[in-house]
Write a protein that binds this DNA or RNA. Structure first.
Ligand SMILES: [Mn+2]
Ligand SMILES: [Mn+2]
Ligand SMILES: [Mn+2]
Ligand SMILES: [Mn+2]
Lengths: 220, 220
DNA sequence: ATAATAAGTTAGTACGTACTAACTTTAATT
DNA sequence: AATTAAAGTTAGTACGTACTAACTTATTAT
């Protein structure tokens, strides 16, 4: 099964969208890939023909077992590459996603395994995302975001979106990194700012940003 | 100028063929890339439209200055990647070419420069090929091969083709690696075997193999 | 239930890259 | 000079991937 870069990326975003529970809607995929919805319809048919997704017309796509395997291998490649770039080549955590987005399609399993070995087989990438094993196992537990936290609750940051370098720099400057402890001290309604304490510092972040920072189960 | 993987590879082989002096013939390119000659004709027209090659109909293609720049950057990426894989990730020298052939199209200049730094900015890859600088300078002196050596002459091995892993393992087992000193002790005519002494060991290799091992100017 | 909106699909087009088959040009032989 | 072989080109086809425009289906609001 020799897939193109595009096909692989489709499978990856379908996997990620599906983690939300529902099948991946055409428009969600289109948005994530910055592609017209019509193009997605076309690709979904091709992927279905290859047995990688199951499409229910007008309803969305789900990965088949083989499709899921491809997605997980790609995710593994992506995350090990990011880890390697940060740990071994001095990249900033805000600067690796795009590079990994391309390299993930060119790296052989052998290369990935060698990188993983050189890193001591890490289980998480620099943004806290779990790294699937070579066998395709991965921690898929659903995380809540800071946006889901109740006022007064505490939680530990475990992961964040790595799409936007600026966003990552913003978070880091505020101490919001994997492992940080946060407490929500106030929330404004209507998607208003969320005030939180990170370490000793108090600050407010927007609801949209808060939704992209994931925490382990928020304790009262 | 955003080029596809294919376009980049075409420019690279045109560069390499042109090193022989003459413009790159359609069939030579086709052979090198394992592609039908008709396909090459088509691609040459596209590359010409992009101003990367100059095509003389029925005569062959030559790189323009911009085309040459692209080829040299690709060569740099390829060779630094090979060096990095061997030096930093424990790859065998026989096993890096194919991996580099893909990664070269996905790696950013930033990544390449970081790898080069980590390696101490090497000037040659594991097979003795010179690495172009970021500015696009490279040692282009023409080398003769063992096949060109006169009986009785000595020379130092500086470089060899890295296309075939098996060939590289064959050479290594016989001590034919960059830096080795060889002396031609006998030659059979009609493309017959060439007997040479490497270190203290005496052995005969085929003329085809000898033509793929390059040496510095053969001394009487 | 109807109408309006959002979401999704199909049809038609384009581009890059490859192929084969048929033709043309160039080079080599007689 | 005429013939043949080798090299190269063009024409026509296919596939993957994208687009826009037009249409259809599903969802939401009235
Ligand atoms: Mn990433
Ligand atoms: Mn990607
Ligand atoms: Mn190589
Ligand atoms: Mn290549």
């Amino acid at each position: 099964m020799n897939l193109t870069r595009q096909a692989e990326d489709y499978l990856k975003v379908i996997y990620e969208i599906e983690q939300g529970g529902a099948p991946a809607a055409t428009t969600s995929i289109a948005e994530e890939l910055n592609i017209a919805a019509a193009s997605v319809s076309g690709m979904l048919q091709r992927l279905a023909r290859l047995g990688l997704v199951k499409v229910e017309r007008y309803r969305g796509a789900r990965l088949t077992a083989p499709g899921r395997a491809v997605a997980l291998q790609l995710l593994r490649r992506h995350r090990i590459i990011e880890s390697f770039l940060v740990t071994k080549l001095g990249y900033g955590w805000d600067d690796v996603h795009e590079e990994a987005e391309r390299l993930e399609h060119a790296a052989s399993s052998e290369l990935i395994d060698r990188m993983a070995d050189a890193l001591g087989n890490p289980t998480e990438d620099p943004h806290g995302a779990p790294i699937p094993t070579a066998a395709g196992r991965v921690d898929e537990r659903r995380l809540s975001s800071i946006a889901d936290m109740k006022t007064g609750s505490r939680a530990r940051v475990v992961r964040m979106s790595d799409r936007d370098p600026e966003f990552l720099r913003y978070l880091k400057k505020r101490g919001i990194v994997p492992g940080a402890n946060v407490r929500v001290t106030a929330r404004e309604p209507f998607e208003g700012p969320i005030t939180l304490t990170v370490g000793r510092v108090r600050q407010a972040i927007g609801a949209a940003a808060a939704a992209l920072v994931y925490v382990d189960d928020a304790r009262a």
